[in-house]
Computed example of a mutant assay.
Amino acid sequence: MDRSTSPSPVGDRHWRGSARLATGCALAFGTMTTLVDWDAGTLTPARALLWLALSAALFAVLLPPRVTAEPGRLTVRGPLHRRVVHTDALVSVRQYEGASSHLVLQDAHGHCLELDPRVLTANPLLWHELDTGARRSRRRGTLHQGTDVLARLGHRIDDETAEAVLRASGLT
């Protein structure tokens, strides 16, 4: 397919708001700590550098990974790494529950990525791209583990979408 006619990637529609929140928290932390240190008369260049480094670390921790999807491909970009998995060549899908639930997707090329399932729930277009690729993987016979995980996730996304439609229409 020609690059000029390829569809643009679908992204997490809430990522920019989360990135702004991370930026605001890091700036507020850096500003407040510097002002308190300055007001106490203990601000030195080394301490200002310390507050700057801590603010940057806070930003890196709070910044969520950016999830994008194209036909046959799912990409997760964090502050330090970029992971890509081919959804039309998936081998396994695992979901880990607990304090931070996450999906682990692995493809036939050895690529692996982790993803928060709430991103898929909040972004039906991302879910559609993943589901379409997983269906191709099943047809090709590469997806050996995780069809039940995808089915449960699909039902949950469908239920939440239907509930949102009913709520928006005033029927609930």
Rank of each mutant, 00 (worst) to 15 (best):
R73S: 15
R82T: 15
L103Y: 06
T87I: 09
R83P: 02
T75G: 02
S92K: 04
A99R: 13
V93T: 05
R73V: 14
H81P: 00
G72H: 05
A108T: 10
T87R: 03
P79E: 01
A108E: 12
V76K: 01
D88P: 03
L103R: 08
L103D: 05
R83L: 11
V91H: 11
V76R: 06
E97Y: 08
V91Y: 04
V84H: 10
V93Y: 00
L90N: 08
L90I: 03
Q106R: 15
Y96N: 07
L105S: 05
L105Q: 08
L105P: 01
A89D: 09
P79Q: 03
L80E: 01
V76N: 01
P79A: 12
L80Q: 08
A89E: 15
R73Y: 01
Y96Q: 14
S100F: 11
V84P: 01
V85D: 10
R82I: 14
A108D: 14
D107E: 05
R82E: 15
S100L: 12
V91F: 07
P79G: 03
T75N: 01
H81S: 15
A89N: 07
H102G: 05
V91T: 12
G72T: 09
L74A: 04
Y96R: 15
Y96I: 10
L74F: 02
Y96K: 10
R73M: 13
V84N: 07
L80K: 08
A99P: 04
L74D: 10
Q106I: 05
G78Y: 01
D88W: 04
R73D: 07
L74N: 02
V93W: 00
V76E: 01
Q106V: 11
G72P: 11
L74K: 02
R82V: 15
R83H: 15
S100Q: 13
L80F: 13
L74G: 07
S100G: 01
V84K: 04
V84L: 09
V85F: 06
R77L: 11
A99T: 13
T87E: 09
S92V: 05
R77A: 15
L80I: 09
L74S: 07
Y96C: 03
R82C: 14
A108R: 14
Y96G: 03
G78F: 01
L90H: 02
H102R: 15
R77F: 02
D107M: 05
S100A: 11
